[in-house]
Amino acid sequence: MKRPSLGAILLGLIPFAATCFSVSLWDRVDPMVLGLPFNFFWLIAWLVLTPLCMWGAYRLEVPRASDGRREEGGPQ
């Protein structure tokens, strides 16, 4: 199978860095944002920011993906 492009992989690593590996940086109650503890707010924000990163990855991947149609043309 074709591997994903480097750019798409890097875009996918952004949410991992922001919500997983960096936990000790944002796991705090203060400052509260919009009434939410900071750690809670941070993770909710990434529910919205992750689709943005992945939309970028989508734009990179889809033009080069072999999606169905081309291979289906076998018998033609």
Binding site: I9, G12, F16, T19, D27, L47, T50, E61, D67
Partner: peptide, 25 residues
Amino acid sequence: VLYILGYLPLMYVVSFYILPPIWEA
């Protein structure tokens, strides 16, 4: 419990790379 909010978007990130080739196979 925040680990749930942490993995939720990330599992879709993983699916982005592996599901299309799985589907193709």
